[in-house]
Every structure is written in C-alpha cells, then in structure tokens.
Design a protein around this nucleic acid. Structure first.
Length: 423
RNA sequence: GGAGAGGUGCUCGAGUGGUUGAAGAGGUACGCCUGGAAAGCGUAUAUACGGUGUGGAAUCGUAUCGAGAGUUCGAAUCUCUUCCUCUCCGCCA
C-alpha cells in the first residue's frame, strides 16, 4: 500500500496519478487525509495523558517507599480519571488506525509516468518483439490434440483424480515439464539469482503481506482446518521471507528464484480461451524476485525484462513484450511488462510472463526496509517476474514445433529433456 | 496425539511488580593507540508513531521483552488465551 506520508504530502498528485489506472481516488484519498489528521491529534492527546500517568505512577512508587501512605492513596485517586481518558483515547486511536488501514488497502499503486493510458488489453503498447513465426504443416493441430496424440498430457484423467484444470503429465510430457523447470532454474542461477525452495502453503499473515488477502481470498485454495493457503505463486512465500526485515544496503539487490507448483481457484470461464493448457488450477512456474534500492529499481526492471527475453530466445519462440496500460496493470504494480509467445496452431498470443516493479507499494505492506550508511531506514523496492510459467510455454512449444515426424525440442532444452523429438 | 520446559535487543544472556528500552558479554562501526596489525582503551549500536524544530541536525514524549487480552497507581516480571521452539513418549514417510 501507499505510505500515509506520501498521500498526505502529495494529495493532489496522488489523485491525479490514480486516474491513469482508471481509479477515481478523490473521495477515498480525502477520507484518508482527514483520518490521518484525526490520528495525529488523538495520538498527541494520548501521549500526553500517558506521560502524566507515568509520572504519577513514579510518584506513587516513591511515596510508598517513603512510607507516606496517605499521600500515596490521594495520588492514586487522581489516576482513576486519567485511566478512563487513556482507555478512551486508546480505543479511538485503534479505531482510526483500523479505518485508515481499511482504506489504504483499497488504493492501488501509482502507475509510473511511462505507463501508457488505456483501459483494456488492446491499449497495451508493444515494446518490442522477436523470434521467427513458424510455418506449420497443413494438418497442424492445437496443443490439446497433440497432447492426446503423443500421450503427453491427460486432461480427463486429471478430472477423474482432482477436477478440471488439474492435468496429468505423462512420459515425455512429464519429462518436458521437469526439463523446463530445471532449464529455467539453471538460467536464473547463472544470472545471479539465489535458488529457494519455499513452502507451498502459507499462513494468513503471509497472504496479507503480499496482498492476496483480504481482497483476493477467493483466488486461493484454503485449508480451513489449519488456516493455511495454497500458494498461487512462489512470489508469496519468497517475498514473505523479507516481511518485517531490515536489510543492509550493501545486501541489495536481493535476487531470489524459486520453482513452485502454483494453485489458483480462478473461477474462470470455460471455452476456447481456457482450453488445454491455457488456464489451469495447478501449474508450474519459476519465479524471479528482486529487492532493490529505490534509485535503482527501474534499471533492475529492465535487467529482468532482458533476462526473460533471453529465455524465450533460447526456446526459439516468437515473442513480444507489452508495456501494460494503466487499465490492464495489476492493482499493486507501478510498471509492468508482459511477455507473450505466439502459439501458432491456436493463432494466439499467450501471456507467459509478467515482470513488474512494485516500487515501495508491496514493501510498505511487508515492512521490508533497508538501512544505508546514513543510518536511515527506508522502504525497499520490490520486483518480480515469472521466468517462466510452464503451461503456455509448453503449448507454444508443442504447436510451433510440430512436424510430420513429431515435435522437435529446441536445442537449448535437449540437454534437459534427454530427447530431441516427441514422436 | 500424551507429558514437561521455554520464548528478552544483531547474537548469547541477566532480570519474578517501581527511573529497566532493558545489567553483563560477544559481535559490528567509528575514534585513540601502532610503522602496520593484534591486543588494549573510549564511544556508539532497535523500531514505529507523535510534539518542538533544522540547511543537515537535534531534542522531547508515547508504545513495543513471541502475539493478544486482563489484574495493578505501576508489568519483561502476576493471570488468562493463542502462536512458536525444545526435551521425553507415541505414531509415521
């Protein structure tokens, strides 16, 4: 969430910039400013009363020591009134802080100045693109047919065991998954990321830390008996490593990567758009996370985008990078680049990665700070990106590389799969 | 799952109702000392919010000793709830 300080000091600017996200913040921001004013007044009053109380208590202690019982008893009586007032003020302060917090989590992050205006995905800017569009054989088919033909992925079996959206990978299909995971992890490690293997379930505090809770609760699977949530992405456990942490400036940037299965309830629609691997309840993803000094976070964002680009290039997929418009960006992001690869048989661009700079929005909620040589603590900037999500990559690989003889594996991946063709 | 012990600052560790935000030690930083280093000596070393205030600073107040609630004039210290850790037993990959 945005910091109170920033909102109160830049009120008009905040409202204006929220407009780019198609968010009318006039009312809510003014409420916040008003509440904050109240908060300060109440806090000051409370502090003063508490100080008086503390002084009185000390006096009483002294009086008792000196054996002045009557004076002590008199002083005691004075505290009754103070006590009531303190209780009242304390309650009021908690109420104000609660309301404030409730409002703050409803305000999205401010978009970076380079974010293009727009409301929908069509308004996103194509930043750059690359790769070669494949020429498919006449009888080319979408990946769900290929998966069946070569017995790589069994969607019906998944339905039997779990439900729709939980595919079963088999044989070379399963090996391809494993190969891609290792390929992505190895690349990330070589790019300087520390590999992490996080828990797949998290507690509520972690859910709040990265903003899945309270508003997006329905998107996560919830184990109610133990009040734990299945992670929708490794971002959640990995980022929460740094919850309530004060880093040393010289430890920045922190670069972490993690593979995890990702679980999404995603009450989505059915049909062509979500067929096959396009949308799943469980899928595999390698995530990259960086925590960076505020002054360097946009350089880091570029670095991460370039890194992801090397992945799609090595996989020899036609790709393009979109700079998301204000309306298509996530709630928490300041600037987001989406990667899409072209899935030739479906004739569609599929989103395979999303790389974002959250600036201090997420860090503020996490209380992830750093301390520099000037001994001041300030909020870090956090960034993350998928590098990458497997299902759509697999869809594109299958579709684009189909030949009459079978499906060819890109060169960079062969050391990982141990086979060159699926036939 | 049963029985017991415990959770204090960056770390270890003292502290069982009254200037204790917290002794002591270690670590770290800076300074002195040294030709350089070690040792030694000195100083500093939590966070948040609020007040006054500044070029930067500074300074005062409040809260925080796992978390939450309570008793009390006063709680790290007493009570309750809850979370977590450790030991023993049981169960189990």
């Amino acid at each position: 969430m945005l910091t109170l300080k920033y909102i109160t000091e830049n009120t008009d600017d905040v409202i204006a910039r929220l407009g780019k996200k198609n968010f009318d913040g006039t009312e809510i921001i003014n409420q916040v400013v008003e509440l904050d004013r109240n908060r300060k007044i109440t806090q000051t009053q409370l502090d003063n009363q508490s100080a008086e109380m503390n002084n009185l208590s000390k006096e009483i202690g002294l009086l008792f020591k000196q054996g002045k019982q009557t004076e002590a008893a008199e002083a005691k009586e004075k505290t009754t009134r103070l006590k009531d007032e303190i209780k009242l003020l304390d309650d009021r302060l908690s109420e104000i802080e609660q309301s404030l917090n409730l409002l703050l989590v409803q305000i999205p992050n401010l978009p970076h100045e380079s974010v293009p205006p727009g409301k929908h995905a069509e308004d996103n800017l194509i930043e750059r693109s690359g790769g070669v569009m494949p020429e498919l054989p006449e009888n080319a088919v979408p990946h769900w047919d290929l998966a069946k033909k070569y017995d790589l992925i069994d969607f019906e079996l998944g339905v039997k065991i779990s439900g729709a959206g939980f595919p079963v990978y088999k044989g070379k299909g399963a090996r391809l998954q494993r190969a891609l995971i290792n390929f992505f992890l190895d690349n990330a490690r070589e790019a300087g990321y520390l590999e992490i293997q996080p828990p797949y379930v998290v507690n509520a505090a972690s859910g709040y830390g990265t903003g899945q809770l309270p508003d997006k609760e329905g998107q996560m699977y919830h184990c109610t008996i133990d009040d734990l949530y299945l992670i929708p992405t490794a971002e959640v456990p990995v980022t929460n490593i740094y919850r309530d942490v004060i880093l040393d400036e010289k430890d920045l940037p922190v670069k972490n990567t993690a593979y995890s299965a990702c679980f999404r309830r995603e009450a989505g629609s059915y049909g062509k758009d979500v067929r096959g691997l396009n949308r799943l309840h469980q899928f595999d993803k390698v995530e990259i996370v960086q925590i960076q000094h505020p002054e360097k976070s946009y350089d880091t964002l570029n670095e991460m985008v370039s890194y992801v680009q090397t992945l799609v290039e090595k996989l020899e997929l036609p790709w393009r990078i979109l700079r998301l418009c204000g309306g298509d960006m996530s709630f928490t992001s300041a600037l987001t680049f989406d990667f899409e690869v072209f899935s030739a048989a479906q004739q569609r661009w599929l989103e395979v990665s999303s790389v974002s700079n959250f600036e201090s929005y997420q860090a503020n909620r996490l209380k992830c700070r750093f301390k520099g040589s000037d001994k001041k603590t300030q909020l870090c900037h956090t960034l993350n990106g998928s590098a990458m999500a497997l299902p759509r990559i697999v869809a594109a690989l299958l579709e684009n590389n189909q030949t009459p003889d079978g499906i060819l594996i890109p060169k960079a991946l062969i050391p990982y799969t141990g086979f060159e063709i699926i036939d």
